[in-house]
C-alpha cells in the first residue's frame, strides 16, 4: 500500500465512499440497474427481521430480535441487528443480512472518516442524509431482491433531543415523531408500541415497551425470534441519550424478560 495522496482536482474530500471509488474498491456490479431484471430473489439468502425504535424522555431506544432466516429455515440464532453508528447515534437493520451488515460497516466508517478528517462530527441531520444516500446507491441491488431497510436514531446535541428516521428502498427519508418499526414482524411490534407509547417514558418503561413489542412480534411472526432462555439469547437493545450510545447488558435484558413473563 502506498500513501493515498491526491491532487486537488481528484481529492475525494471527507467521504469514505468517494475514497473507495477513487481507489476502485467500490463494487458497482450489483448497483447496475440495467441488470435489475435478472432477479436474485430466488436465491435463499439470510434475512434479518424485526427491529424497532422509539423516543423516551431522555433520548431514543432501539431494539432488534436475533433471528436470521433463509426461506423457512433459521439460518442464525444470535445475529446482531442494532449497531452504534458513532458516539451519539445508532442504526438498526432489517432485510438481507449480507448487504445489511456491509451497509452498516460502511456507514460507521463514513461517519468516523468524516469526523477524523474534519475534526468534528456530522450533524444528526447530516448523518441521516448520508444513510439516505447509501440507500439510494443500493437501489439496483434492492431491485434484484437484496433489500435492506434501516432505522436511524440518535441524540441531536444541538436540538437537545432524541430523533429517529425511517427509510424506504429508494432512499426516501422520513423523520418519525414517536416510533419506527421495520421487518417482517413490524406490524405487530408497531401496534404494541403505538398503544403503549408516551413521550415521558422512563428508561425502564421504554425498555419494557420495546421488549414487549418484540415479544408480541415473535409470537405472531415466524421470521422474528423470541427470547431464548435455554441458550441465553435475548434481543439487542441500545439506548442513546446526551451521554451517548449504550448497549444494554444481556443480563439486564434477561431480567426484564422474566418480569415481562409474569405479566403475559
Amino acid at each position: 500500500m502506498s500513501l493515498p495522496l491526491f491532487s486537488p482536482d481528484t481529492d475525494p474530500g471527507p467521504s469514505f465512499l468517494n475514497l473507495l471509488a477513487t481507489e476502485q474498491m467500490l463494487d458497482h456490479k450489483l448497483n447496475n440497474t440495467a441488470d435489475a431484471k435478472k432477479s436474485v430473489i430466488e436465491i435463499d439468502v439470510p434475512h434479518g427481521t424485526t427491529v424497532v425504535a422509539c423516543k423516551w424522555q431522555d433520548g431514543v431506544i432501539m431494539a432488534g430480535d436475533r433471528r436470521a432466516t433463509s426461506g423457512n429455515l433459521i439460518s442464525h440464532r444470535s445475529m446482531e441487528k442494532v449497531f452504534p453508528a458513532d458516539s451519539h447515534s445508532g442504526v438498526a437493520i432489517a432485510g438481507v443480512a449480507g448487504p445489511s451488515i456491509e451497509m452498516v460497516k460502511l456507514f460507521q466508517l463514513q461517519l468516523e472518516h468524516y469526523e477524523k478528517l474534519e475534526d468534528r462530527q456530522l450533524s444528526l441531520e447530516g448523518k441521516a442524509n448520508q444513510l439516505s444516500f447509501f440507500m439510494k446507491s443500493n437501489l439496483g441491488a434492492a431491485m434484484q431482491g437484496l433489500v435492506v431497510i434501516p432505522i436511524f436514531a440518535g441524540y441531536d446535541i444541538h436540538a437537545e433531543t432524541g430523533r429517529l428516521f425511517n427509510y424506504d428502498v429508494t432512499g426516501g427519508r422520513y423523520e418519525e415523531k414517536e416510533f419506527a418499526a421495520v421487518g417482517s414482524g413490524s406490524l405487530h411490534a408497531s401496534t404494541v408500541i403505538k398503544l403503549g407509547h408516551r413521550d415521558d417514558l422512563t428508561r425502564d418503561g421504554a425498555t419494557e415497551l420495546v421488549l414487549n413489542a418484540l415479544f408480541q412480534a415473535a409470537d405472531e411472526d415466524t421470521g422474528t425470534g423470541g427470547p431464548d432462555p435455554l441458550r441465553g439469547i435475548y434481543p439487542t437493545i441500545a439506548v442513546i441519550t446526551k451521554d451517548g450510545y449504550e448497549s444494554l447488558e444481556e443480563s439486564e435484558v434477561a431480567q426484564k424478560f422474566s418480569q415481562l413473563s409474569q405479566v403475559v
Binding site: 493515498p4 475514497l19 473507495l20 474498491m25 472518516h113 477524523k116 478528517l117
Partner: peptide, 15 residues
C-alpha cells in the same frame, strides 16, 4: 496533507 493521507491509509487498510 500527510495527516489526511494517513487517516485514509488507515481507514482503507482497516476496511
Amino acid at each position: 496533507q500527510l495527516r489526511i493521507a494517513g487517516v485514509r491509509h488507515a481507514d482503507l487498510k482497516g476496511y
